[in-house]
């Protein structure tokens, strides 16, 4: 398409399908949580509609892109769109890290009377307001929501699976960088190998993460294990979700590389996904250090 032309896309019905899908998903979810037997099937229906919408919408964009309808201005709009979308994701993760720091540095010490010397309650026998111990509350303690707190026998060991998983994910960053490098040199055969390696590492990470959840759950560390369990599962859970999305996006990119959609000079789709993967990688590194170590 001519560089001096504005591109205005045709009318589209994908957004309304997306709205119907996401609404169905949420309504199903909310009903599921309140014991409606049909909630889960409605959720599944909404999710399928969403997946259908994404395939359709993104497929249309890819088709338009490969048929040369877009110019550099459209490319730049996509770049800005993707970048600020990722920034909103950064803010979303920032909330949960903020919660982790707040609970660890402020609210848990306050429970032990810090900053307020004449109020040092003995919440239960042997209570000490340290971050590690907050998960080991008295068995039978009940939250306001009526949930009985689950007391773990031990917390997740940083030396085992988490360290291995960190190594795997960091390695996937390396393989992705090699893929990026070969793409920039226009070497299509090698990039496929590196991309496959990245995807395999991502899937391995997810597998080990599920194993670790299994161990933790078996040891009694659950979402209901007080603020420790809450922050642990919320942070790792949302991270795992983003890794899943990242793996799916990398798979799509792999498919598009095979189709020859990218050139050494023009490969925004690849760059967007690559940056997303690096971001997910860094979030894990932050998780590993702040949840398990510092």
């Amino acid at each position: 398409m001519n560089e001096r032309e504005y591109y205005v896309p045709s009318a589209t019905y994908w957004p309304i399908i997306g709205s119907i899908g996401v609404t169905t998903l949420f309504v199903g979810f909310a009903n599921q949580m309140h014991g409606a037997s049909w909630g889960a099937s409605i959720m599944a229906l909404g999710f399928s509609i969403l997946v259908f919408m994404m395939f359709g919408w993104f497929g249309q964009v890819v088709n338009e892109s490969t048929s040369g309808m877009y110019n550099t201005q459209v490319d730049r709009s996509f770049r800005w769109g993707m970048s600020w979308f990722i920034f909103s994701e950064v803010m979303f993760f920032a909330v949960f890290f903020g919660v982790l720091f707040y609970a660890r540095q402020l609210s848990v010490p306050w429970l032990g009377g810090s900053g307020n010397n004449h109020f040092t309650p003995d919440l239960w026998n042997g209570f000490s307001s340290t971050w590690q111990q907050i998960a080991f509350s008295t068995p039978g303690l009940i939250l306001q929501s009526g949930t009985v707190i689950s007391v773990p026998r031990q917390l997740v060991d940083a030396w085992g699976l988490p360290a291995l998983n960190t190594a795997l994910l960091l390695l996937s960053g390396v393989t992705l960088t090699f893929a990026h490098h070969t793409l920039r040199n226009g070497d299509r055969n090698k990039i496929i190998g590196w991309l496959v390696a990245t995807i395999v590492l991502g899937v391995l990470f997810l597998g080990f993460q599920i194993t670790e959840y299994g161990h933790a759950y078996h040891d009694g560390l659950k979402l209901t294990s007080g603020i420790y369990g809450s922050t642990f599962y919320m942070l790792t859970g949302f991270h795992g979700f983003h890794v899943t999305v990242g793996v799916i996006m990398l798979t799509v990119i792999l498919y598009r590389v095979q189709k020859g959609h990218f050139s050494a000079d023009s490969h925004f789709g690849f760059e967007g996904v690559a940056w997303y993967w690096h971001f997910v990688d860094v979030v894990w590194l932050g998780l590993f250090i702040f949840v398990y170590w510092l």
């Binding site: 590690q132 026998r153 940083a158």
Partner: peptide, 19 residues
């Protein structure tokens, strides 16, 4: 961690003498 400059956030329940 190997040099024991930092400690992981992991403590066995037995480490505490309550209950």
């Amino acid at each position: 961690a190997y040099m024991d400059w930092i400690e992981p956030n992991v403590i066995m329940m037995d480490a505490f003498s309550f209950q």
